[in-house]
Design a protein around this nucleic acid. Structure first.
Length: 267
DNA sequence: ATGGTAGACGATCTA
C-alpha cells in the first residue's frame, strides 16, 4: 500500500494550470499541496483537478497574494486554517486523511519570504517572518493523540549548509541567516519533526528546490536553495521510500521558480 | 556592489 505527497509553490495556479495537470498525470501523487495559488477560493480551478481524480479539495485562498490548497484522491476531514500572526494572510491549511490504518494530519504552509533586509528594525517583513516561525514552534508532530503528522510547504528557509549554493555567501541573505535557520531547526527539534528530504539525501550533498527568476541562466549558475520541505512525525520515517525533486520543471515554459517535491511512502 | 524577473492588479505590493 503506497502513499505519495507532492508539495509545490505554483506562483499562480490559474496561470500555470496546464503544468499542474501535467504533474498530476505524470508524478500522480495521492495528495498535492500547493502554495502561492494567488487566487480566492471561488477562483481556484477545482473542476479541472477533480476531473483528474482529485475529488477532495480544500482551499485557503486570498485575493492576489499567497494562498494554499490541498487536492487529494483520499478523503480529507477535519480541515483547519490557522491565521498565523493574526494578519489575515492565507498561509496555512491542514486536514486529516487515512492511510494504512493510520490517521494522518497534513499541514500545508507558506511561510513569509521576509523581504530583502535581514533586520526587523528596518524591515517589518523580516519581523513578520520571525514571528511566524516563532508561532510555528507551538506545532508539535504529536499534537493530536493517535494521529500521525506530515508538514509540507514553502518554508522560505534553507536551514542547512548544503541547502544553499554557498553557505558563506548566504549568511546575510534572507532565507539563510542564522536567526532563520536556527529558528527552523528549533521548530523541528521542539516539535519532534523529521526532515524527510534529508533522511533520503545526506546533509553533505547539495539539495535545492528553488532557483531565482533573476538569474541569467538558472541551470548554468545552479545557485539554488532548498526552500521547500517535507517533514513528518517519527512514526512515518520508517515508511519513507523516496524523495523526488522534479528539477526539470524549472526549465518548462513559463515555470514556477519552485519545483515539485514528492515523498513516497509504503507500508 | 549592483541589479536582475515574475505575477496580480490596476495605487504598487509581494516575492
Amino acid at each position: 500500500m503506497n502513499l505519495s505527497i507532492t508539495t509545490w509553490n505554483i506562483n499562480s495556479v490559474r496561470l500555470r494550470l496546464p503544468i499542474v495537470e501535467d504533474v498530476l498525470k505524470t508524478v500522480a501523487p495521492d495528495i498535492l499541496c500547493l502554495q502561492e495559488i494567488k487566487c480566492q477560493n471561488d477562483e481556484f480551478p477545482a473542476d479541472a483537478l477533480k476531473a483528474l481524480g482529485y475529488g477532495n479539495i480544500i482551499i485557503h485562498g486570498q485575493k492576489g497574494y499567497h494562498g494554499v490548497a490541498i487536492a487529494s484522491r483520499l478523503p480529507l476531514t477535519e480541515d483547519h486554517r490557522q491565521d498565523y500572526c493574526g494578519v489575515g494572510d492565507a498561509r496555512h491549511i491542514s486536514a486529516i486523511f487515512e492511510w494504512g490504518g493510520r490517521r494522518i494530519r497534513i499541514h500545508n504552509f507558506y511561510v513569509p519570504a521576509g523581504g530583502d533586509e535581514p533586520d526587523r528594525t528596518v524591515n517589518p517583513k523580516f519581523g513578520h517572518k520571525l514571528d511566524f516561525i516563532r508561532e510555528m514552534r507551538e506545532l508539535k508532530a504529536g499534537a493530536e493523540p493517535g494521529v500521525s503528522a506530515i508538514l509540507v510547504g514553502d518554508l522560505n528557509i534553507a536551514p542547512l549548509e548544503n541547502d544553499v549554493w554557498s553557505h558563506k555567501q548566504m549568511l546575510k541573505i534572507v532565507s539563510h541567516t542564522p536567526v532563520e535557520t536556527e529558528g527552523l531547526l528549533d521548530i523541528m527539534r521542539e516539535g519532534a519533526w523529521v526532515d524527510l528530504m534529508r533522511e533520503h539525501v545526506p546533509a553533505d550533498q547539495k539539495l535545492y528546490t528553488w532557483w531565482s527568476y533573476r538569474a541569467k541562466d538558472w541551470a548554468a549558475a545552479d545557485r539554488g536553495r532548498r526552500l521547500d520541505h517535507i517533514w513528518s512525525s517519527e512514526d512515518l520515517k520508517a515508511n519513507l521510500r523516496g524523495i523526488e525533486i522534479l528539477k526539470e520543471a524549472r526549465g518548462w515554459e513559463k515555470p514556477s521558480d519552485h519545483v515539485p517535491v514528492t515523498a513516497r511512502f509504503s507500508l
